[in-house]
Design a protein around this nucleic acid. Structure first.
Lengths: 344, 344
DNA sequence: AATGTCACTCTACATCCAAGAGTGCTGATT
DNA sequence: AATCAGCACTCTTGGATGTAGAGTGACATT
């Protein structure tokens, strides 16, 4: 890690903040005007030359001002910003919590509302995933006969997630039989994390091959079909609001985002990776993740319920977004979600 | 309706087809080169002047070629194209049906797949709505106790639609009681269209105010809450594929589409309006519907099950899209959906 | 009525120029 | 040794200018 002395830090901070505000290359004179650093433009130029050499800023062309590089933003978010204390406006905080609190519906609606709120407040694209299926706690299973050889399997989780899926059976079962199978499953697996449920089922199938036929059958089916029951969805909001922002509206970027979003698997993997660690994370310049997402950044945080299942909420915006504002907003939203989910 | 003689029709057709192919203003010489009409450019110019006077084509500026107006496209779709017979390529037809047929899952997945397929084949934005909630046939209702004063209501329709919703109760009910209520509802309302169910419930509530308490309670809740259970979703596909198309990618248009889509209510209303009539419809130049959607057209068709519930599938593209190709594709997709839904 | 011709109009594109912004370097100052 | 003022230089931006090409409308001709 290259160490920067105080002056260089101050000037880098000034450049980045100015660039966030104005979205133009920042020259030495502009900095002396906007900040009272007590240095002449010439001195600042010297420092800027050094910062460029170190890779924190770059000149789009000779005789233009400097623009922060990804490395510059990274350093800003990690180091420069950390040194300041930024707290969320308390009125804003109340409003955020309020919007989520009113609803108090099931988990899915809550997550949708979170995305909507986040996009509203950030004016960027907001994303939110429910907890990963593997990590949720099974509350109740229910089978409902649907047609001769089809049933509807319903999974309810402690967190308030509801998933249903039509499963084809290869024998005809009566509703009674289905009920019995569901009861059996409920008794044995209720209160466990889905991942554990899967393991147990696999073990049981392996060990006691024949108990009573239909039951094992149902188990087998459930076991097989619980995997594609994986959460393959996330909420998304603010697409149109986003494109209002003039500097976020370059066609290239919108296309990049759309493409990434369309590939839901990709986004899900990314978000789940995030939710493995806690707290608010900032991805600066996402091209290391997806080349098309150059010049985009993501601020994302995790929420959780009883320290078990965790989902993610966040925003995607231009690399030169106002992290000082956005990080607290995302952070607070995630915390509010965690609180609401814990209350239930 | 202004009548056009054969020559004018032929030239208008030539202009529109050329414009669809090339996306540039069409001049008189170009037409003589592309078509063997047997007329000189000068004659064509005279006719073009007349067509412009009548409002079918327009000059972007003096000494540019002509571009079809909305009226021109409308006339093309309604009259000129009708005169030709266009049938879908049978290989394409098989592939369309095939992609949908393989799945044969529940209605929701089917609709998603339809949107995906349509966007794939058209390279435009595809939309699809499930049948309107009001029109589906109730197959089974199930209540599952969720928490002290909450239950999960599950609605299964004949069409294979499954909707669930967490409903708050103001008394504590046992699962037994919930089952009894559900049974009561199933016995009385199964096989009816939701619209009818609502009516009947309203009537019953009005007439026999007190039967046995909890039952009426549950009914009341269902009745109240079945309304927001309205289908508020539609599938959408091809956003990123769409933006591949260079001439469809103007930022303005993408923004317009995004905005319209984000306002789900608006799109739903539009699609439901469509599904009131049968067959494939073409909306040319949608600015009469939404000003921002200028220069966009929609080709949309309805599918249905047993002549009862009907949903809509379609594509949104630039006004100068290739209607000759697109209409059969949409048409066929809708028909394939209808067939698959009827088989079940 | 259909066609050939020609002057006219307008766009698109390249070129040029001037203004402005910003830099790096040098030499003087503290 | 650090700071700073001054200056020559570079590069972008925007407006102005000119030209080639496409297309038209009008008019005379067949």
């Amino acid at each position: 890690m290259t160490k920067l002395n105080e002056r260089r830090k101050a000037i880098l901070r000034a450049i980045i903040q100015s660039h966030i505000d104005l979205n133009i290359p920042i020259g030495s004179i502009l900095i002396t005007q906007r900040f009272s650093i007590g240095l002449s433009p010439a001195t600042i130029r010297n420092t800027m030359a050094k910062l460029e050499e170190l890779g924190y800023i770059i000149q789009p062309h000779t005789s233009a001002g400097r623009v922060p590089t990804e490395k510059g933003y990274r350093f800003y978010v990690d180091t420069l910003m950390e040194e300041e204390t930024f707290s969320i406006n308390s009125a804003l905080s109340d409003e955020l919590s309020g919007r989520l609190g009113i609803i108090r519906k099931d988990c899915n609606s809550l997550i949708k509302e979170a995305a909507r709120t986040l996009s509203l407040f950030s004016r960027y694209l907001a994303i939110a995933t429910p907890p990963r299926m593997e990590d949720i706690v099974l509350k109740r299973i229910k089978f409902i006969k649907y047609e001769k050889k089809k049933m509807l399997a319903i999974l309810i989780s402690e967190e308030g997630l509801v998933k249903n899926k039509i499963i084809e059976l290869d024998h005809i079962h009566s509703q009674k039989q289905l009920d019995r199978a569901a009861n059996y499953l409920n008794n044995r697996f209720s209160g466990l994390v889905i991942k554990k449920v899967k393991e147990k089922i696999a073990y049981q199938l392996y060990k006691e091959k024949t108990m009573f036929d239909q039951l094992i059958d149902s188990l087998l089916y459930l076991c097989k079909d619980i995997v594609p029951l994986e959460n393959n969805d996330f909420s998304l909001d603010g697409l149109s609001g986003t494109s209002n922002l003039p500097d976020f509206a370059t066609l290239k970027q919108i296309k990049a985002i759309l493409r990434a979003i369309e590939d839901k698997n990709f986004m899900l993997k990314l978000l789940h990776r995030v939710s493995e660690s806690r707290g608010t994370q900032v991805f600066v310049g996402m091209e290391s993740i997806l080349p098309a997402m150059k010049e985009l950044s993501m601020v994302v945080s995790t929420f959780n319920n009883k320290k078990l299942a965790s989902g993610a909420v966040g925003i995607i915006g231009p690399t030169r977004m106002n992290y000082k504002k956005m990080i607290p907003i995302v952070d607070h939203t995630a915390k509010a979600l965690t609180q609401i989910l814990s209350e239930t």
